[in-house]
Design a protein around this nucleic acid. Structure first.
Lengths: 366, 366
DNA sequence: GTGAAAGCGCTAACAA
DNA sequence: TTGTTAGCGCTTTCAC
C-alpha cells in the first residue's frame, strides 16, 4: 500500500462503501448522531463531534447522495440544459465561455456541482430538457438558449417551484424567470430607425423563426410599421437559420426586389460575408442603394462595415446578472422568479473594425 | 392552462411528483410491472406495456434518480473533475473546448449527463476531487489535469473499480488509467538534443514542479545527462509556475550564469514574451549565445521563434483517444484500465508563425 | 406474465 | 445531548 494511504475495512468486514451506520458503530453512537455531524447540525457535544469527524476523515466517508436526496431535494447541484439543438442554434464559443466562467465563479467555487444535459434532442426531438429536475438530479437549472414556439417544459418548470432561469422567455407567459434582452424592442428600434430615414419597404431577415425570440422580432417590426401607418407585407419577412447558405438566399430574395430599400439583419449569425454575398447576387450594394441595420451581441462592435446602424442586444450581460440572482434563489437568499430583461441599444456610428463571425462551440473539432 | 399542457394530479390528490406506485395504481398493475416498463425489461405483455407507456407520457413521469441509484450505480452520468486548482494550473481555452466538444460528442449526444466538479480546492486545499464518485453522484469520471505529488485520490479511484481516466499519471503507480504524454521522454529528447549540439550546462525551466508531470521532466533530464556521463547540477533546474513573473525570473536566473549555454522551456506556459524578457535581463540573446528548446501542445507550432527546436507533447490528442476508450468502459463495452501514452516529437524546423500564448479558460471575465 | 415484500442509506419527527 | 422509528421511491428476490 502506498505511503499515507488509508484503507480501512467496514466493521464486520462488509464490502462496499461506508455508511452512517458503520461510522456510528465504530464511534459507538447512533446513526442519527453521525448524520448530525455530517450535516453540521447542532445537538452533538464537541467531543463526540470531533471523534466522529476524525473517523469520517480517516475512512474517507462520503454520504450517499441518492439516499440523501430521498429525504430532501438537492441543493448542491445546478443543472445546465440546452433548450434547442446545437446544430439548429449554435452557441458561439464566446457565449459558452462566458456562461462557464460565471458558473465556475458562482457555483463551482462554492463547491456546488454543475450538471450538464448536453443534448437530449438527438435521441428525441421532443425531449424534455428539464428531465434532470424531474429526476431530482439537480435542484435548479439554467435553460440556455431560445424557447421553441411549442415549448411546454418551461411552464412546467415554472409551476414546479424549482429555482430556474431561462435565457429567453415566452411571448404569452411573461412570468417566465428569465435573463434575456428585449428582442421586440430591438426589432422596433431597427424598423423605426429605417422608417425615419425614409424607407417604406423594409426587409426583415428573421432569426430564430421557430422560437419565441423570433416571434418577438416580428412583433417589434409590425409595431413600428403600424405606428408609421404602413401595411405589413409578409413577403418582406424571411425566417433564416444560422447556415451561410440560408442567409445568402434570404438576403438575395429580399433585395432582389429593388423596391425594397432597406434590410434588418436580425439573424443573430453576425455573418457579414453571407449578407454581402446575398446582396451581390441581388445586384445590390449595401450602403449605396440599400440600408442595412445589423444586429450584434457585442457592445459597440461592427459586424457589417456597410451597415448604417448596429443594434446591440446584450444577451451575455443579461445572463451574467441573471446567474447571480439565480444563485441567490437557489441558495435560499431570495425568492423567484427572476426578471432580467436588458434593452437593446442602437448605434449609428461605431469606430471598431469589423469583428469576425463567431465560431460555434459544439463544432470545435469537426 | 396553456394549450397542450398536461397537468394531472396524482391518484388520491397527493402532492409532489408521480411515483411508480401512482402509475401502477392508475394502470391497475403492480409497481414492479411499471418498473419493468420503465427499464425496458421483458416479462410484460405488449398491451400492458403500451398502456403503461401512455400513462407515463401523459403525466410526464420520470423515475426518481436518487431512489434508483440506491439499488444500482449510476450509468448515465459521467463526472469531470479538476485535479489541480485552476489558478495554479490554468487550463487554456483550447484544451477546455476540446474536452467539452468530446464530451458532447461521446456522452452528451447519447443522452448521458456530464457532471462538473469545478473547484473543490478553494474551500479545501486537500479536497478529494473524486467526491462525486464516492457520493454515487456519477458512475465514472475524468480527472482533468496533472496529479499532485502527494495525490492519494487517484489510487483510491483506481481500487474502487469505477471507470475513470486521468490526464496524467503517477510516476510510481503505472497502473493509473490515463491518457497523457510521456513527459519523461520529452525531457530526455530535449536534453539529448542539446547535448548532441555540444552543450554541457543545460538549464531546465521545469513546469508542474508540484506534480508528477514535473517529476517526469526531472527524470528524463537526468537520464539524458547520465547517458552522456554528465554530473547533474540541481541549480540548473528551476521549477516555475504559469505566471509571467515566475518565468521571467526563472530564465533570468538560469541564463545569468554565462557558462549555461542552453535552456529547455518545459514550463508548459508557451509564453515566448516572458522567456525573451528573462533572457534579455540576463544579457543573453536566444539563438545567438544560447540555444533554447521550447515545449508546445500544438503540433508543428512555433511557440518561440528563436528556439533551435520545438518539442510537441500531444496531450489533447491523447485525451481525445482516451475519452473514447473511457466511454466504452463506462458503457460496459470493454474493461479498464486505459493506457494511452503518446510519445513527444522533436521538430528542428517549423515553418509556422509564432503562435500566441494560450489564454486561460477560467479567466475569461476578469 | 405479474405481484408482494424487503431493503438500499439517509434524515425528520419524535422519544428518552 | 443522544437514540429509535419510520419511510422516502425504487428494484431485487421470490412467489404465484
Amino acid at each position: 500500500m502506498r505511503k499515507g494511504e488509508v484503507q480501512i475495512r467496514r466493521p464486520g468486514g462488509k464490502p462496499g462503501a461506508w455508511t452512517v451506520h458503520d461510522i456510528a458503530q465504530v464511534a459507538g453512537v447512533s446513526a442519527k448522531t453521525v448524520s448530525r455531524v455530517v450535516n453540521k447540525q447542532s445537538g452533538v457535544s464537541e467531543a463526540t463531534r470531533a471523534r466522529i469527524t476524525q473517523i469520517i476523515e480517516d475512512v474517507g466517508y462520503h454520504p450517499h447522495m441518492g439516499a440523501r436526496i430521498m429525504r430532501s431535494s438537492p441543493r448542491d447541484c445546478i443543472g445546465l440544459t440546452l433548450s434547442a439543438p446545437p446544430n439548429e442554434v449554435p452557441f458561439s464559443q464566446q457565449v459558452i465561455q462566458r456562461i462557464f466562467a460565471e458558473l465556475y465563479r458562482i457555483f463551482g467555487a462554492k463547491g456546488d456541482y454543475v450538471c450538464l444535459d448536453l443534448n437530449p434532442f438527438r435521441r428525441n426531438p421532443n425531449a424534455d430538457y428539464a428531465r434532470g429536475l424531474w429526476e431530482q438530479r439537480y435542484g435548479g437549472c439554467i435553460v440556455s438558449g431560445p424557447l421553441a414556439i411549442e415549448d411546454q417544459s418551461i411552464v412546467r418548470i415554472h409551476r414546479s417551484g424549482h429555482p430556474y432561469i431561462a435565457l429567453g422567455r415566452l411571448t404569452d407567459f411573461p412570468e417566465t424567470s428569465c435573463a434575456t434582452v428585449d428582442f421586440e424592442e430591438g426589432a422596433y428600434l431597427s424598423t423605426r430607425f429605417l422608417l425615419e430615414r425614409g424607407h417604406k419597404r423594409i426587409g426583415l431577415l428573421q432569426g430564430f423563426g421557430r422560437y419565441h425570440s423570433g416571434l418577438e422580432r416580428r412583433h417589434g417590426y409590425f409595431r413600428a410599421l403600424a405606428e408609421a401607418g404602413i401595411e405589413p407585407d409578409e413577403s418582406l419577412i424571411r425566417p433564416v437559420t444560422f447556415g451561410s447558405r440560408d442567409i445568402i438566399t434570404g438576403v438575395h430574395r429580399l433585395l432582389a426586389d429593388h423596391a425594397t430599400t432597406a434590410l434588418i439583419d436580425s439573424s443573430g449569425a453576425e455573418d457579414a460575408a453571407s449578407v454581402r454575398d446575398g446582396a451581390r447576387r441581388a445586384g445590390r450594394v449595401p450602403g449605396q442603394d440599400c440600408d442595412i441595420v445589423a444586429w450584434t451581441y457585442t457592445d459597440n462592435a461592427t459586424v457589417l462595415s456597410e451597415a448604417c446602424a448596429h443594434v446591440w442586444l446584450p444577451l451575455d450581460e443579461a445572463a451574467v446578472e441573471g446567474f447571480d440572482l439565480l444563485a441567490d434563489w437557489f441558495h435560499g437568499l431570495r425568492d423567484g422568479p427572476i426578471h432580467v430583461v436588458y434593452p437593446p441599444t442602437l448605434y449609428e456610428t461605431i469606430r471598431s473594425d469589423e469583428i469576425p463571425k463567431p465560431r460555434p462551440f459544439f463544432d470545435v473539432l469537426r
